[in-house]
Simulated assay, not measured.
Amino acid sequence: MTSSKPCPICRKPRHADHAPFCSPRCRDRDLAQWFGDGYAVPGRPAMPEEIAREITRGSGEE
């Protein structure tokens, strides 16, 4: 079964076996984008100290 939305990588029709992509190739290309920092949330990088504070704050010290 195919969906009305196209594959987000190549714009071909989606395939149910590889949703939301059309093929294993497009699925793998998307994964490579994540691994290679191709996708990112805008903003400054977090400092390790800030991450440590967030972890300790969320560990039940309230």
Rank of each mutant, 00 (worst) to 15 (best):
R27Q: 13
G58S: 14
H15N: 01
P42A: 15
S23C: 08
G60R: 06
I51D: 10
K12E: 10
R11L: 00
D30C: 07
W34C: 09
M1H: 10
R25C: 05
G58Y: 11
D37I: 13
D37E: 14
A52Y: 11
M1W: 10
S4N: 08
A16H: 00
H15G: 04
C10D: 05
R53S: 06
Y39A: 04
E54M: 04
P13K: 09
W34T: 07
E54N: 01
G58F: 13
E49R: 06
C26Y: 03
D30E: 13
P45H: 07
R44F: 08
M47S: 15
P20I: 00
W34A: 10
D28M: 02
C7N: 06
A19M: 12
A19D: 14
E50V: 11
A40Y: 15
V41M: 15
G36R: 13
I51T: 15
W34K: 14
R53T: 08
A52D: 11
S59Q: 12
L31G: 07
G36Q: 14
G36S: 12
P8A: 09
W34P: 01
R53I: 09
P8Q: 07
I55Y: 00
G60I: 13
P13R: 08
R29P: 01
T2G: 03
P45N: 01
C7K: 06
L31N: 07
C26F: 07
M1I: 14
G43I: 09
S23D: 00
P8S: 10
C26W: 05
S4H: 08
T56P: 05
T2Y: 02
H15Y: 05
T56F: 05
S4C: 02
W34G: 06
P45W: 00
D28E: 02
R11A: 08
G60M: 07
R25F: 03
A52T: 11
K5L: 11
A16Q: 02
P8G: 04
A19K: 08
G36K: 13
S3Q: 10
V41C: 15
H15E: 10
M1P: 11
D30G: 01
R11W: 04
P8D: 09
I9V: 09
G38I: 13
M47N: 15
S59A: 15
K5M: 13
C7A: 00
P24I: 04
S3Y: 11
G38D: 05
P20W: 03
A19E: 14
R11F: 01
G38V: 12
A19H: 12
